[in-house]
Computed example of a mutant assay.
Amino acid sequence: GKRELTISLGIATYNVHSKNKNDLIKRADEALYEAKKTGKNKVKVWEAEFSKQSEYNDKLAGILTGNAAYDYDKVSSMIEMLNITKSKNDKITKIYEMMKKLIIKTDSTESYIFFVEHDRILDMKRVVKDFEGFSEIGYFNKDIIREVRINREGIYTIDWEEIKEVGSLETIPKWHSICVLPLINGEKLKGILYFSAPAYIKEFDFKDFNYIQTLSDYISILL
C-alpha cells in the first residue's frame, strides 16, 4: 500500500502464433519486451514485427556456440554440403546425399523432400537413416505440409496426430518430433523438407530449425 504497482504483459497464443511451446515462450517474451519498451504498464499481443529486433542474433543460433569442437563440426557440415553441390553427380543424387547428411547431423530418423511446381506437389522422396537409397513412402503429416506450402514458413513441433506404435510403458504413444521447411529459390517455392524423429529420443528446437534451414539452402540451389 506504500507505492503503486504496475505490470507489463506479453502474450502469445497457442495455435495462432505457434504450435511449439518454446516458440510461444520466445514470442511472449518478445511481446513483453515491446510492452516495456513502449512505456510499460500495458499488455502487448505478439506480432511478427516484434521478432525483427532479435532476428540478427537468431541467425547464428544452432550454428556458432563458442564451443570449438561443436562449431568446427557445424562449419565442416556447411563445407561438405557445398562440396556436394559442386560434385559431378546428378541433381537427385546430390539431393539424396544432402538429405542423408542432414539426417545424421540432426539425429533424425527419416526425411522427406516434396518437389513443388506452380504451388503443387509433383513428386516426393523419402530417405531413412539406416537404409541406403530412397525408401518407400510412409507416414507424414499432410496438414503440416499444406500449412508450410501455403504460408511458406517453416515449423518445428510434435506431431500429435501421429501414433505409430505404443511406447515401452504400453500407455504412451510414440509421437514424433518434426521439423518442416520450405525450399525457396528466388521467390518461388520449389520444395519442402520434412525431418522426423521419435520425440522420446529427439525433440527439435529453434537451434535445430535454424541449422537445418541454413543447410537446406544448398538444396534450394539445386531446385
Rank of each mutant, 00 (worst) to 15 (best):
Y33Q: 05
L222H: 00
E30I: 11
A28F: 05
Y194A: 00
N151P: 10
L169C: 04
Y96I: 06
G154N: 05
N185Q: 09
K129F: 06
K164M: 10
L222M: 10
L82K: 11
G1S: 15
F206A: 09
T214K: 15
S76T: 13
I155P: 09
I172E: 12
K36C: 08
V128Q: 04
A28Q: 04
K37F: 00
E47Y: 04
S87V: 05
D29N: 15
I178M: 01
K188G: 03
M99D: 06
K42Q: 15
D217V: 12
E55S: 12
L181N: 09
I63A: 02
Y70G: 01
Y211R: 06
A35L: 01
G167P: 11
Y14G: 13
S108G: 00
D123F: 11
I25Q: 10
L82N: 14
A61Q: 12
I113N: 03
R3A: 15
F131R: 14
F115W: 07
I79H: 08
G62R: 02
L169W: 09
K190V: 12
K37P: 07
A48H: 10
Q53F: 15
K88G: 01
L9G: 10
N67K: 14
V45L: 13
V166D: 10
V180I: 01
E165R: 14
V43N: 14
T106M: 03
V128G: 02
V127L: 02
L9S: 15
L82T: 13
N141M: 08
F204L: 00
D29F: 07
V128E: 08
K100S: 08
D205I: 06
E161L: 13
K44T: 14
E49A: 14
I84N: 11
F115H: 08
K26D: 08
Y33N: 07
M124D: 07
N67F: 13
L183I: 08
N83Q: 13
T93I: 15
L189H: 00
S220M: 08
W160I: 14
E203K: 15
T106F: 06
K52G: 07
S76F: 08
K40Y: 08
K100G: 03
A199Q: 09
I163W: 08
K105Y: 13
G186A: 01
D208L: 03
E47N: 11
Y72P: 05
N185S: 13
D208Q: 04
I192R: 03
K40R: 15
G10W: 05
G138N: 11
N141D: 14
Y96T: 09
N83R: 14
E153Y: 04
K88F: 06
K2Y: 11
E80M: 10
F115E: 09
K100E: 10
I113K: 02
D119W: 03
R126G: 00
I137F: 05
D73Y: 11
F195Q: 00
Y33V: 05
Q213N: 14
I103F: 07
E117G: 10
K129W: 07
E170I: 13
I212A: 03
D159I: 01
K129S: 06
S220G: 08
E161A: 15
K52V: 04
A35T: 06
K26G: 00
F131P: 09
D29Y: 09
I7H: 07
W175M: 14
E55C: 00
Y194H: 06
A28I: 02
D107R: 07
K105A: 09
I158F: 05
K174W: 01
